[in-house]
Amino acid sequence: MLLKINRLRVYFKSADGLVVATDGVDLQLCPGEILGLVGETGSGKTVLGLAITCLLPKTAVASGEVLYRGQNLLALPEDEMRKVRGRQVAMIFQNPSSSLNPALSIGEQIAEVLREHRGLKRKEARQRAGELLELTGIPAKWIHSYPHELSGGMRQRAMITIGLACAPSLFIADEPTKGLDVTIQAQVVELLHAVTKGADPQRSMLLITHDLGVAAALTDRLAVMYAGKIIEQGPTVEVFRNPRHPYTRALLNSHPSNGLMAVQGFSPSLINLPPGCSFHPRCQKARKRCTQDPPSAKRMGSDHEVRCFNA
């Protein structure tokens, strides 16, 4: 097991009360596996990614365990954690145009990472940066371009190159296709496949997205998040063919190819979650029990878990 998350709970203290961003999250990731984390905005996907890399803002309080190769990252001192980030676990964020430094050329930014982590000499690092750029489909002669000279898709490619420069075992990509044209999205999906399964069969990826199409194309397993909880997880094919949670079903029905059916109601405030199952106010199958007890994870088949009384 490469990554094992146990009962991860992250909350923020705010003036209005506790904001519980993730609550009792259990997740597992095997070497070479691509796990998709889907859910709507504010469901806690990004916070989960930040918790794995221990980059949560200072106002956040995290409890539970994030075991990476058996080592609890949450308990690791900051300078130890810094050695894990980039080399072992690398995360790239949504919106590459703000994640790239406008004052440095992309070649320099890749070379910098190599020099910092790998201790390469300036010249070696620059050469390696060129090779890496070629691998991600950017001509090496563009090594001196600045981020503003690149298109959105190219920037995302550059960002992926930087993230993978030190060959991490776990790559966390937060909304890598956000804000890109559909054709460019397809290229980025292809690239993500190439740099994980294609380049190193042992490399795992946690793909955070709200694009079900991207998740379907790339992932082996899928976890659906709702209001800070993972309400369903299982093999991607299984979840798509046979969704057990009403929210997953609603989410799949909201996809244009399935009729663009909006999920009724609004996502709940994380400060004031409804009692019982957080989804019950929007669930057509809600019973009395759903409004009282929070459902625990129920096993459906070998590797499929659902948090729903009706499943």
């Binding site: 964020f93 910098e112 910092e116």
Partner: peptide, 20 residues
Amino acid sequence: GFIGAAKALGGSNMYIIVRH
């Protein structure tokens, strides 16, 4: 964003100040 990105890739404080 790029400061957060640099941190996510394991940049030290010194590196972030000097290079970014």
